[in-house]
Write a protein that binds this DNA or RNA. Sequence first.
DNA 1: CTGTTAGCGCGTTCAG
DNA 2: CTGAACGCGCTAACAG
Lengths: 338, 338
Amino acid sequence: MTQAPEKKPVTLADIARAAGTSPSTASRAISGRGYVAADVRDRLLEAADRLGYVPNASARTLKHRTSRVIGVVVSDLGNPFYARLAAGIEQTLREVDYQMVILGDNSDGDEEVAAARTFLAMRAPGVILTPVGTAATRLLRSHGVAVVEVDRLLANVPCDAVVTDNEGGARDATELLLELGHRRIALLGVATTWTTDAGRLKGYRAALKSHRVAYDKNLVLRFPVHDGNAQARIGRLLDEEAPTAVFAANNQLAQQAWFALRERGLHIPGDVSLVAFDDVPWMEMVEPGITAVAQPTFAIGRRAAQLLLRRLDEPDLEPAVERLEPSLLVRGSTGTAP
Amino acid sequence: MTQAPEKKPVTLADIARAAGTSPSTASRAISGRGYVAADVRDRLLEAADRLGYVPNASARTLKHRTSRVIGVVVSDLGNPFYARLAAGIEQTLREVDYQMVILGDNSDGDEEVAAARTFLAMRAPGVILTPVGTAATRLLRSHGVAVVEVDRLLANVPCDAVVTDNEGGARDATELLLELGHRRIALLGVATTWTTDAGRLKGYRAALKSHRVAYDKNLVLRFPVHDGNAQARIGRLLDEEAPTAVFAANNQLAQQAWFALRERGLHIPGDVSLVAFDDVPWMEMVEPGITAVAQPTFAIGRRAAQLLLRRLDEPDLEPAVERLEPSLLVRGSTGTAP
DNA sequence: CTGTTAGCGCGTTCAG
DNA sequence: CTGAACGCGCTAACAG
């Protein structure tokens, strides 16, 4: 590593000296706030450019007592759902020159709180998170940090949120199956009290009820969060309960259900129909395509960032909960009941 | 938003006062560096806890003249390749309490440089990037910032790098096709001078040569970076050149090739074999599965972060270029030539 | 072992 | 329109 002149970073004082002014004038010229004679400004800007001046964000943050960093905490960046969410957030923030720092929490409440502390330390004015518990949001809010909860809504303190209409989406999906004549519809869900899972279950039950189909709890399986080993249990359900349709409440469970069906040589939709909540690329590519409740993931990210930015502008607005409508993409995996 | 007591953040001075010591003693107690009597320390820690003290990262950064933020710049977080890379980096950094700030650059050199400036402003000690040009790396290095280039290696200044063995991977893939009797093998690549694309093309040509098959430039298509509209051109190639196999040099081109094949009702591998560089989930799920050169994406991210951390420890090490071996996953999409 | 002093780089008074 | 002075919160030196 021969490079690295290690020359200590140039400061406002340096460029002030180079231009023969005081540091305060240099500050005004660079930040563009406050009066400064045109010719002096030009001289200063030229000097800054020539010396390769880069403002020190920490000094600014220290002075302003707030940074331009927005914290984002998701369960798992490797999951395409969270990745697209993050992509939407990042794009929106970058347009207005905010930076996104991402922390993962593995769906663990303690790690989520640790992430919140980190963002407090960074003096982030706002945080976007897919909540795992209520502690992190409460902590952040109690320090005056704006919070937007995404995907799920758990907060017991005032904060904004952007969520999908889980109940509506699940109802539509279940009704599609009911209208195709299915009566034994398995539900694969997650065992949490999160609004996502609760909403999807609720929608499922509502659809059954409106079609006067009894709720059979043997057809409902609930897994730990992000359970990578759900396939065996799903397989057992297929063997023992012989559902004619399966509704998987997230993309991971859908994938494992799909493998379980294939493993058994069960034909989709001939033997069993399959519907997924949350559309991901492979669902369009397999044969037959998987009918899915598509969430506008990228848009959710964008919207969350917008809500946060608005909140930073006007802290006293009423908390807003935006409920985005998912759309049911009917593909080949749903057919009439055998 | 009734919450937000807006009480100004508690500082070391506050907890020092609460415990009846001086700020420096408080500092030593909290940071754990320097002598401090056990009972005094306990008193201090208790006070910090009680008052909800959160250290101010900016003040520390200002003092230390370096932060615990590592910059990461990728082309597009929405692409699963970059997302998994980021996931690997984030996980590794979090273990040692560094934060990752991600910026996207849409494969644009100017945006990449802008990202670099942002990281300079944040006094990030290191940056990991999938380089688009040489300017950003040069700028960062000239300010003494450690840089690890990932996926591609463009730097003309000393820096570490983690790349896939593109040439070897492409050679293996092409040889598989040649051994299956294919002679008209189309190559879908990207029109850059990046080592990824150059390496893959080189591997393709090397394989052809070793099998004494002439290189036919009509079979080679090169697209703009992240071209979402490649499908039509691919379709035309299929129509006009009738290749018996297609080697797509990245996951996006593979996806578009796959759709183009399906659109024409061409059977895989009966009519045309397909191989992809970069394995993504759908390739295992479609029928037949797509033979792919799998990169250890997550591991590349981890390795890049490790290399960076090592460099921060020992700045004077020789620049290291790690070349990770991809593995060829043979699935159903490759068959004997018609 | 502890307190005092000083300064990291910037922006914001407040005089001039 | 400009500069001098101060302080944001923390920590490294240096006395004590």
